[in-house]
Design a protein around this nucleic acid. Structure first.
Lengths: 246, 246
DNA sequence: AGGTTTATTATGTCTATACATTATTTATTT
DNA sequence: AAATAAATAATGTATAGACATAATAAACCT
């Protein structure tokens, strides 16, 4: 029989309760940045539990960057972090169907070749390798939504040479078949050139949002993709709640 | 004395070694999505350690969403996650000085008024409130870098009325003085209108990258800001290492 | 055959304890 | 007074066990 009174809607387990208790105090500002939170020994007395239990709670808070732990000194509330946002770059098909619109995909071209100078620069590789170059268009309700240009490093992903990208986009195929360890996104605004204008049915020079993404696995470049969206049509949305996972 | 041979460049602690061992196998594709990784009991035999130790390693992998744990069934490699990226939206001053360039800030206008219809829409508030409307320009080496338009909700942040924004940008002031709990970013491409073109020294209609950010605290809108960058000049970079904190 | 109970397996939480590590303070010596 | 050594306070890692929980598989009875 425990004497600890359970809070309403308190998490079922003790370490979670300790964690959210402290979390609330930090996020509400009651424990401001720099504040020294009670030591593990104080907390184990307060919650009448073992040190491992409070340690687990504090470790998770440290992983979420809400507190910083220093030996001999104690644990301290961290100051608000750099303004960073989690940008969910969803699969385009998912994005369109989530809006309740019809998704269409059209493969414009598919070529296999030895990587030329431009390909190697784009992929960020120095040695010779085979690549698969794809061009495609994603549409919503028949209206062009995004133009995709992609290079796949066939030395890293040989299976891609036999994949059929005429019905499903390379993005979803890769996502499902190839694990990756690192990705880089570069987001910029450009004016539509003649090719883009033609594919997206916009005027030449009209502003477009561009996402360049490169993906690696263990240092080896897997693929580089460039997605061009008509600027006024599309917005990337990043919502950022608090500072950590719930 | 332990019999476990230490790998070169292996982490100093056992649970970390177990974690990175498994992580490597997953990221290399040797253990593909759906693969059932050894149970805790198998791992404690293999590493000759206690269950708590392997459990700690597996718990961290689960927190990083690399594996999924199911009672009675075991732990399984998860399929690659939604492509999400952490976008570091740094302070503009920090961004410029990090590039080794000189930072300049110029306040173009500052007006206090009761929020009009457009202000309320932009802030996303319905009731009447006082706002501070700011226009400013950030430059790198004397060249316009970004144009900032901002509204501050004075009902939520009354101290801002007395702050001096002619030397330091409102962004850094707010970051330092006002804790926030939620933020939303909308990123799009637009063509420069006459005002933007004049401030940024670009041609009218030239593509620009726009970041709209709104910030809340406990459901109350604090500020809305719109940053316009010359498109070809600026890129937002989001690098995403692995899937979890190192 | 179909449904119900029971056993089994694997994860989830927790305890009590031990020793390691790190940084600081205090005491001791030169 | 300065340099060195020892005690101390906090976190970090690890152990061996306990009981809880969930989901499945096996045994059992209609």
């Amino acid at each position: 029989m425990t004497l600890v009174t359970a809070t309403r809607s308190s998490p079922p387990t003790l370490y979670k309760r300790i964690r959210t208790d402290i979390e609330r105090r930090i996020l509400s500002g009651k424990w401001p940045p720099g504040y020294r939170i009670p030591s593990e020994h104080e907390l184990m007395k307060r919650y009448d539990c073992s040190r491992m239990t409070v340690s687990k709670a504090l470790t998770e808070l440290a992983q979420a960057d809400l507190i910083q732990r220093r030996k001999r000194a104690g644990s301290f509330v961290r100051r608000p972090q750099v303004l960073s946002a989690v940008l969910e770059i969803t699969d385009i098909r998912a994005e369109i169907t989530a809006l309740g619109r019809r998704y269409d995909y059209q493969l414009l071209s598919r070529r296999r070749r030895e990587a030329n100078r431009g390909d190697r620069t784009w992929l960020g590789v120095t040695e010779a390798c085979d690549v698969l170059a794809l061009e495609a268009c994603h549409s919503a309700d028949g209206i062009p939504f995004a133009k995709e240009s992609r290079l796949i490093n066939l030395d890293a992903v040989p299976e891609a040479a036999r994949a059929d990208f005429s019905r499903d986009s390379a993005g979803s195929w890769l996502l499902a078949h190839v694990p990756w360890s690192e990705a880089e996104h570069r987001i910029a605004a450009i004016g539509a050139d003649d090719k883009i204008a033609k594919t997206l049915h916009t005027a030449e020079g009209s502003p477009c949002l561009v996402i360049n993404r490169r993906t690696w696995r263990n240092g080896q470049t897997l693929t580089a993709v460039r997605l061009v969206y008509p600027g006024q049509e599309h917005q990337l949305v990043a919502r950022f709640k608090g500072r950590q996972a719930a």
